[in-house]
Nucleic acid binder design. Structure first.
Length: 427
DNA sequence: TCTGGGGTCCTAGGACCC
DNA sequence: TCTGGGGTCCTAGGACCC
């Protein structure tokens, strides 16, 4: 008996951030809406109406200002607290809909629909769309395929024509070739702009062309991951569904400054805040870091002296203790900083992570008592900040008013679904 | 003048993703 | 005036060892 062909569904929320905003502003249905990245830098989500205006993903916000004004586009700063919570709701519904699911990103999940004999996968997917819409208010599209890569392609197609009702099926082999011929290589999951250009220069235009390419050439120019993509296009699964997320390998916090900074004390202050936020994330996941890296850069879009530098240091022992991380970070910053540059961005990356619970505790370790004091202190700090709002208690930072380097979030919506709703209204 | 070969570990850089 | 942030994986090349 031959093995049953797997059926993978990719469920993807339509214009997710825009849809989240619309759930709480029903009057925005059918109106043009855009959501900006952190720092109000670029457009990261567009309603269908904004896409129709020709605004591309990632366009700098200032380049769209006039167009947005002219078409009365409602613009929001990104509100990740809201989106994270809405994402959680969607994923809970999906978990009820399939025996195995992989949450792939804030707005996407792979579902394993193999062997669900009772209902054909396509009609089941129609049911899932309906349920998610009814329970969360978020519209989704679903693509089906025998591999993740084909499910991704099917999902893109599902969004292409309204008459397909947000569903597309690439599980069957009969029309697959004809369809892959219409898919440009740059739209394949795993093929970014560099590889797309390389392929096009070789005369490979479509997903079908790529799937027909010689394995050795792909292996040589697109590495082993590119070869997996090609196998998956041919219907041969290489990328497993991963219901349990792999442990995270790094935790980072970086920001562009609201305006460029040249003076060391101001940069130090910004970096301190980033370190504290990274440390909060670290502890929130019950992790310790064994390595810290700091970076600093000027704006590469601007003329003038450029400087970009990063440097890492091992930590004497794995830790999530903010003061230890702060002093190491400051130490590195002193080395990286050069006077006379208008810095635009800084950040910290914590890596070599391990769970706090498995760290060796020796009974006679003289450090142990101190470590236990450190843990208690950090627990108290995290409790205060989670109860009274992030950054109620900061280490080594004065709490005075908004700094020049703090990011712009001028068009933030309210945090409808979570507590501590102290933030400004949408503008 | 001649100047191996193979293994491991580490890092920087380049590609990708959402 | 104004161009995000947070991740992952792979490879090449250097250092080091026997």
């Amino acid at each position: 008996m031959c093995k049953q062909m797997p059926v993978i569904a990719l469920v993807d929320c339509n214009n997710f951030y825009v849809s989240c905003e619309r759930v709480f502003h029903p009057d925005l249905e059918g109106k043009p809406v855009a959501v900006l990245s952190n720092n109000d830098g670029c457009v990261v989500a567009r309603s269908a109406e904004v896409k129709a205006l020709g605004v591309k993903m990632g366009t700098p916000a200032f380049q769209c200002a006039e167009l947005f004004a002219r078409h009365k586009v409602r613009v929001f700063s990104s509100n990740y607290t809201l989106y994270g919570d809405m994402s959680h709701r969607v994923m809970e519904v999906l978990r009820e809909s399939a025996p195995r699911i992989e949450v792939y990103s804030i707005d996407e999940a792979f579902l394993d629909l193999s062997g669900l004999r009772a209902e054909p996968a396509l009609s089941r997917s129609a049911g899932i769309r309906k349920t998610v819409g009814k329970w969360t208010g978020i519209p989704v599209s679903i693509g089906l395929g025998p591999t993740k890569t084909l499910a991704k392609i099917a999902n893109r197609l599902a969004k292409k024509r309204p008459e397909w009702n947000g569903l597309f099926d690439l599980t069957g082999t009969d029309r697959r070739k004809a369809i892959l011929k219409t898919v440009p290589v740059k739209e394949i999951w795993g093929i970014g702009p560099r590889y797309a250009r390389l392929l096009q220069d070789r005369g490979l235009q479509s997903a079908l062309d790529l799937s027909n390419c010689a394995d050795w050439w792909i292996r040589k120019h697109l590495t082993i991951t590119g070869l997996y993509t090609v196998f998956e296009l041919r219907g041969q699964p290489c990328l497993d569904l991963e219901p349990v997320p792999a442990p995270q390998k790094s935790v980072a916090c970086s920001r562009s400054f609201g305006s460029p900074i040249s003076e060391l004390p101001a940069i130090r202050q910004a970096l301190c805040l980033y370190v504290q936020q990274a440390a909060v994330k670290l502890r929130g996941q019950g992790l310790l870091a064994g390595h810290i890296q700091v970076f600093l850069k000027t704006n590469s879009f601007k003329p003038g002296p450029r400087h970009e530098a990063h440097q890492g240091r091992p930590l004497p022992r794995p830790t999530a203790f903010t003061p230890t991380l702060l002093s190491k970070a400051r130490e590195i910053l002193e080395v990286l900083y050069r006077p006379g540059h208008a810095y635009q961005k800084a950040g910290v990356i914590l890596s070599e992570l391990k769970p706090a619970s498995t760290r060796q505790l020796s009974l006679f370790d003289p450090d142990q008592e101190q470590q236990s004091r450190e843990n208690k202190l950090m627990q108290a700090l995290d409790r205060l900040n989670s109860k009274y709002g992030q950054d109620t208690v900061r280490i080594g930072l004065t709490g005075d008013s908004r700094k020049s380097w703090e990011m712009r979030r001028d068009r933030l919506s309210r945090r409808f679904t979570t507590a501590w709703d102290e933030l400004p209204q949408a503008g």
